[in-house]
Computed example of a mutant assay.
Amino acid sequence: MSALLCTDVLDVLCPMHLTLNATGHITHAGPTIQKMRADVPMVGQRFLEVFVVKRPRSIANMHDLRQATDLKLHLELRDAPRTELKGIMVPTSAADGSMIVNLSFGISILDGVRDYSLTNADFAATDLAIEMLYLVEAKTAAMEASRRLNLRLQGAKIAAEEQAFTDTLTGLKNRRAMDTILSRLVAGNSSFAVMHIDLDYFKAVNDTLGHAAGDHVLQNVARIMVEETRETDVVARVGGDEFTVILPDVRSDDILRRVGRRIIDRLEEPMPFNGQECRVSASIGTVWIQSGDHPSMEALLSNADVALYASKHAGRARQTLYSPELRDSANAGIPPIGRSERVNEH
């Protein structure tokens, strides 16, 4: 009866204890340690067949284990999951050579709770593991709240950055975005092109039909330019009726001519607005930077302006590809009409 009372008491105070007989067989298992091997009763098995003693390393048999009383044992269950445990073994006062081994998870308590679905009912009421679990749960909740806050802040930061690089009327990139992208391309060593596009007759739309019509035209122009360029190209609105298209990885001027032609043709189509027709066209100045060229961004944009100037003077609604001769004509104050007719496509 006293032995039964003893195990009943130990089950409450030390729910992860084991009692061993003189041969090292398990004679009783506390409810929590048995719950960890619910399908295989521990009673009747040899202790060293259920557990591996990892430290002290000198323990190889029950005789060695008996000599390790009052020492901290580092154990591991032999079957998966191979949970690591801490333990201490003490002999009982009985003359039969029985022993009690009290076990705990130590720092692996989180793994134990997860692997065996343990709750606070599986631990002694005074076990510090309960406080540890509460602290871990509180820390986990705080970290999750912090993670969600960081995600919201990161999302807000990305949205703010995106807004800072976006033209609010058209949804295109703005001049700030264009400068950033061009700076990166200029610093690289790959081929790319820049189209500077100015709308012809846009002022007439604003003056005759109003700013609402002008905004309608700009939004349509933005949509058409996006539709007529690749996903890898960047379309930016850099002024009231000025746009820039950046085309990375350009391998021939034929590509540029075709893109420019498509944009010009599409923009010459009338745009209905409140029963009226808005008519504009586009003049384009294009600079093609080939691999190995290293222009400054200022020179690049200046060259695009020179080519655009040539398109305007050649009759508008056309594209001019920049060449050094255009710069010579511009510097001399000579309208580059002949030069534009030679290099443009119309």
Rank of each mutant, 00 (worst) to 15 (best):
Ser291Tyr: 05
Glu268Asn: 15
His313Phe: 00
Glu137Phe: 07
Gly275Leu: 04
Val221Phe: 06
Val245Glu: 03
Lys203Gln: 01
Ile181Gln: 12
Gln67Val: 09
Leu218His: 04
Ala310Asp: 03
Leu5Tyr: 12
Arg339Asp: 13
Ile158His: 07
Ser302Leu: 11
Ala317Gln: 08
Glu161Ala: 11
Leu256Glu: 06
Glu277Tyr: 13
Ser183Gly: 12
Ala141Phe: 00
Gln34Pro: 02
Ile88Met: 15
Ala222Thr: 07
Gly338Arg: 15
Asp254Gly: 13
Arg152Pro: 09
Arg114Lys: 14
Val280Gly: 02
Leu169Cys: 06
Ile263Val: 07
Glu131Lys: 11
Thr119Leu: 01
Thr92Pro: 02
Thr168Cys: 12
Thr229Arg: 03
Arg37Asn: 15
Ser58Val: 03
Gln45Asp: 11
Ile264Cys: 01
Val113Asn: 01
Leu151Tyr: 14
Glu277Val: 02
Asp70Thr: 09
Ile255Ser: 15
Ser311Ala: 14
Ala222Asp: 00
Ala80His: 14
Arg266Phe: 08
Glu228Gly: 04
Val221Ala: 04
Lys35Arg: 15
Gln67Gly: 12
Asp249Trp: 10
Pro272Asp: 00
Val186Ser: 02
Phe123His: 07
Tyr201Ser: 08
Ser98Tyr: 01
Thr19Tyr: 11
Arg342Lys: 14
Leu300Arg: 06
Lys35Asn: 10
Ala125Leu: 07
Glu76Ile: 12
Ser191Ala: 12
Glu325Phe: 11
Val280Leu: 06
Arg46Gly: 06
Phe273Ser: 07
Thr229Ile: 01
Val53Ala: 08
Ala299Pro: 00
Gly97Asp: 03
Glu277Thr: 06
Ile26Arg: 07
Val53His: 02
His294Leu: 10
Val12Thr: 09
Asp233Gln: 00
Leu110Tyr: 05
Ser329Trp: 07
Ser281Val: 07
Gly87Gln: 04
Leu118Trp: 02
Leu308Trp: 06
Arg251His: 14
Thr168Lys: 15
Ala138Leu: 12
Thr168Asn: 12
Leu10Phe: 11
Arg148Pro: 09
Arg223Thr: 15
Ser281Pro: 01
Leu300Pro: 00
Leu182Lys: 03
Gly285Leu: 01
Asn331Glu: 14
Gln219Met: 15
Arg148His: 13
Ser296Asp: 08
Asp179His: 11
Ile246Asn: 07
Leu18Thr: 04
Asn303Pro: 01
His17Cys: 10
Leu153Phe: 12
Asp200Phe: 07
Thr19Ala: 10
Glu162Gln: 15
Asp198Phe: 02
Glu84Asp: 14
Leu73Pro: 06
Ile284Val: 09
Asp179Pro: 07
Ala193Trp: 03
Phe105Asn: 03
Ser323Gly: 13
Asp115Phe: 15
Asp215Val: 08
Met195Val: 00
